[in-house]
């Protein structure tokens, strides 16, 4: 593959925006090897023995957090979990003090999710450990985009030349931003679709097509990626009712016929059945939603593996 000669040299994985196509290719190819480890009778390799990984989740997460935890355990790393409730941050400690205290424990890698964009970047500048962004506000969620790309590649054999429709709450989604960067870098065509009230202005400047109806977005698509309506991130209701949203933008069997015959349906989860996606589509033959979760572990193993080989002096 294309990644034959390139080596990983970054201390941190903060976003997709700064990665080259070759680096993305290396991450995906490495993940391919790790997916085999998940199929072994003993799903564990000694690779990160003696390395310490801190998982800092300042925002609720089930899937991403457990996925990172499983990935760390399968690589034999020691891991420690912090979450907002009960942490010193709730007791008034500043983020920088938290970072310095964590640094004093000399972890090798820190996985962080935070509601404010840029927090992982700030942390990465302050500490020697490699930092992995597990979602910062509505900014980036690089490992999600990587696992989406991995899943697409598994089904379509490539990313280049594919037509990928991403539909839903484009404005509040970090998954979209990371996916846009990744898919366009790898030569796919991206169409974003959703109500105007959930579409950021000037999104077309990121090199994507914009559609304001579901039908226009998914027509002829190889991949249909539905996004969750993030009610908790919205200050105001951007559409009159859930019922109306589903009628206009919910993915149903009939609507899916507009996409290519062999189109796959994806969702980063957690999904709201009957809001952005009908149950029979979510559970249907074209859905790869649970596969995304499985591949998430392989992709995160690849990220942990590659980052752990770079010390802060080299980066």
């Amino acid at each position: 593959m294309t990644s034959e000669t390139i080596r990983w040299t970054r201390k941190d994985l903060l976003g997709i925006a700064e990665l080259s196509a070759a680096e993305i290719g290396l991450l995906l190819d490495t993940a391919e090897s790790f997916s085999e480890v998940g199929e072994r009778p003993i799903k564990k390799v000694p690779t990160l023995r003696g390395k310490t990984v801190l998982n800092l989740f300042f925002e609720a997460s089930t899937r991403t957090r457990s996925s990172f935890e499983i990935a760390e355990k399968r690589l034999s790393a020691d891991n420690l979990n912090f979450s907002t409730s009960g942490s010193a941050l709730e007791k008034g400690e500043s983020l920088i003090d938290t970072a310095l205290n964590l640094q004093a424990m000399a972890p090798d890698l820190v996985v962080i999710r935070h509601g404010s964009p840029g927090v992982p970047h700030m942390l990465a500048r302050r500490i020697d450990a490699g930092v992995i962004n597990a979602g910062d506000g509505a900014h980036e969620h690089p490992t999600q985009a990587l696992l989406d790309a991995f899943t697409i590649r598994r089904h379509k054999g490539r990313l280049e030349g594919l037509r990928v429709a991403i539909v839903g709450d484009i404005e509040h989604s970090r998954v979209v931003r990371s996916n846009l960067h990744l898919l366009t870098k790898m030569g796919a065509t991206v169409v974003v679709g959703g109500p105007r009230t959930l579409m950021p202005v000037e999104i077309d400047k990121l090199g994507v097509e914009v559609a304001y109806t579901l039908d226009d977005a998914i027509r002829g698509a190889d991949v249909v990626m539905m996004l969750r309506i993030q009610l908790e991130r919205q200050g105001r209701m951007s559409f009159p009712s859930i019922k109306e949203y589903f009628r206009l933008f919910g993915l149903t069997r009939e609507r899916l016929r507009l996409a290519k015959d062999d189109a796959i349906v994806m969702h980063p989860g957690p999904m709201n059945r009957g809001v952005e996606i009908a149950s029979d589509v979510a559970d249907g033959p074209d859905s790869v939603i649970l596969e995304q979760v499985t591949h998430g572990v392989s992709v995160r193993m690849a990220v942990l593996y590659l980052l752990s080989g770079v010390t802060s002096e080299e980066a």
């Binding site: 080596r7 090897s33 390799v45 080989g309 080299e314």
Partner: peptide
């Protein structure tokens, strides 16, 4: 993934998989 020198070499070697 089973090498004993992973922490001493510069960049991680590529993993190509076991079958």
């Amino acid at each position: 993934l089973y090498r004993d020198d992973l922490s001493t070499i510069a960049a991680q070697p590529q993993v190509k998989g076991t079958r």
